[in-house]
């Protein structure tokens, strides 16, 4: 079983968000970068569990510059067998998906696992685009994945509930909460990660379709209005007359 897991880099969830260069660039100074949580906790770990149960391999793939290497090493420390980095700055979802699809096309993966979304761009786009470009089924927002031979059974979030689907043959999936539990790399994993293969391949030069022209921070919040704990009629009246939300 050959599993490909798409790993992206994201600012730590507690990072201070600010911008430079006339609000056109994210200020990276002082920011700690992590593996995007959905990619790590759910896609990667479930991929590893399946590989262990089925004698397979897990390869991670990332579109990014050398600044991606530390988070890729972490994925290797958690247990991936090898890693591919496509050497290009990720500019938009279409470019990232095209690069990954171009690489994955001829390598016979049984499944391509993505995260639900990146926590910086919040696109939720790359997985569906890879599926379209590889002409594979796309199962979005999966919360459970089981594989039996060539038949995968997947539970996914849909409007109003969850559904269980079956798909035979290769597929692309985006992973949401519930697929697996976070794994902390151990010392042995960290040591092994140093010598596991991280292959850097040149980008195929896929085009971008979108660009961010500027960023904005939300307007400063006005001070919180305190209401006496004894006077819930006052709260209701404020919500009705002032905020007009009930």
């Amino acid at each position: 079983m050959k599993i490909l897991v798409c790993i992206s880099k994201a600012p730590d969830t507690t990072a201070k968000i600010s911008f430079t260069d006339g609000d056109t660039k994210f200020e990276e100074a002082g920011v700690q970068f992590i593996i995007n949580p959905y990619d790590e906790w759910y896609a990667l770990v479930r991929g590893l569990e399946l590989k262990e149960a089925n004698n397979g391999t897990v390869t991670t793939i990332s579109v990014g510059g050398a600044d991606y290497d530390p988070i890729i090493r972490k994925a290797l420390a958690i247990g991936a067998d090898d890693a591919v980095r496509i050497d290009a700055h990720p500019n938009d979802a279409f470019q990232v998906a095209s690069e990954i699809a171009n690489y994955a096309k001829d390598n016979g993966y049984d499944m391509v696992l993505c995260g639900k979304e990146t926590i910086d761009y919040n696109g939720s786009q790359v997985g569906g685009m890879i599926a379209e470009l590889m002409e594979l089924p796309y199962i979005s927002l999966a919360v459970k994945l089981d594989v039996n031979g060539t038949l995968a059974t997947i539970e996914r979030d849909v409007q109003g509930g969850t559904e269980v689907v079956e798909v035979s043959g290769a597929f692309v999936l985006s992973a949401s909460k519930g697929m697996a539990e976070q794994r902390i790399p151990n010392m042995r994993g960290i040591m092994q990660a140093r010598t596991k293969p991280l292959t850097v391949v040149p980008a195929s030069g896929s085009s971008t379709m979108t660009e961010v022209v500027s960023y904005e921070l939300p307007p400063a919040k006005t001070a919180c209005k305190m209401v006496d704990a004894e006077d819930m009629d006052e709260l209701i009246s404020l919500l009705h007359n002032e905020a007009k939300v009930i």
């Binding site: 600012p11 911008f19 761009y121 919040n122 660009e211 022209v213 960023y215 904005e216 921070l217 939300p218």
Partner: peptide, 10 residues
């Protein structure tokens, strides 16, 4: 973007 902590003009 950034999980609601900022906005981007795309």
């Amino acid at each position: 973007v950034f999980s609601g902590k900022a906005f981007a003009n795309c």
